[in-house]
């Protein structure tokens, strides 16, 4: 197990190391200004000094993205369930939902601030909008792709609509819901940072704008890297949950 993990990960690990190495050497070789592109070592130094003041920002962003993600998940699953159980509603509103996703969030953000002010609400709305769609679509896909034979069995046994949904369609959709959750999890961090640009007291987005406007580029990079780490942590957490929830699944088989 351990050795196979090592075998699988050494290549990408090496690639990242190589990338950082080239970056470091290039900035020194061409003596690129630190405000333009800081060397990885500069970023590490900056990170060490700035982390204590950075922590409250980090905490704020994590809270924001987690709450946004949870709301988005709830809304996404709710929407998918309604659309699935009511085909008419689905026909009517599904195109609308797709159109809503083609609206760039960054354009929507200032509008939301005009309507709802600078508090948490517009930020949560932005994250929810970013999260609910992948979850709704994947859940809906999972519901509709339920194994025909199992549906036939349940109907022959006299299952009603609610039993069909709770005992068959919902558990059947769990694997595909998780693929939606993984996408939504990473979106939520990105959406949280973007929403903080609009105006907030704390948060990685705020920290980033402040650093950028004073040309402290290393700080911007620290913020970017931390955002990436949070995003990855979310992804990992969802992956763990997925492992737990679909432990019944045979490896390499998907039925």
């Amino acid at each position: 197990m351990k050795t196979s993990l090592l075998k699988k990960t050494w290549r990408p690990f090496l690639a990242i190391l190589l990338f950082i190495g080239i970056w470091e050497v290039a900035t020194r070789l061409f003596s690129i200004e630190e405000w333009l592109l800081p060397a990885p070592s500069d970023i590490v130094v900056e990170a060490k000094s700035v982390i204590p003041t950075f922590l409250p920002h980090l905490q704020s962003t994590v809270t924001l993205s987690v709450s946004g993600f949870l709301i988005g998940t709830t809304v996404g699953l709710g929407v998918a369930t309604i659309l699935h159980l009511m085909p008419r509603v689905r026909e009517t509103f599904f195109p609308f939902i797709i159109i809503s996703q083609n609206m760039p969030i960054i354009v929507l953000a200032p509008l939301l601030v005009i309507w709802f002010g600078f508090n948490a609400l517009p930020k949560l709305i932005i994250i929810t909008l970013a999260c609910f769609f992948p979850i709704a679509v994947s859940a809906l896909g999972g519901f509709t792709q339920t194994n025909r034979e199992l549906v036939h069995y349940m109907k022959m046994m006299g299952a009603n609509k609610a039993q069909l949904f709770w005992k068959l369609e919902l558990p059947h959709a769990v694997p595909s819901i998780f693929s939606g959750l993984k996408i939504a999890g990473t979106y939520s961090v990105m959406a949280a940072v973007v929403s903080e640009w609009l105006g907030a007291q704390k948060g990685i987005g705020v920290f980033m704008t402040l650093a950028a406007s004073s040309y402290r580029t290393s700080r911007v990079f620290v913020a970017i890297i931390v955002a990436m780490i949070i995003s990855l942590a979310f992804y990992g957490l969802i992956l763990l949950l997925e492992k737990f929830f679909i432990r019944w699944q045979q490896k390499g088989e998907n039925n």
Binding site: E149, Y153, G158, K167
Partner: peptide, 27 residues
Amino acid sequence: FISYMPQQASLFPWRTIMENVLVGQEL
């Protein structure tokens, strides 16, 4: 009103054998 056994076993992959045989009673 009837109990049914289909051509394919049609067991629920996320349920254990015990949980599977109880489906009919659950309904």
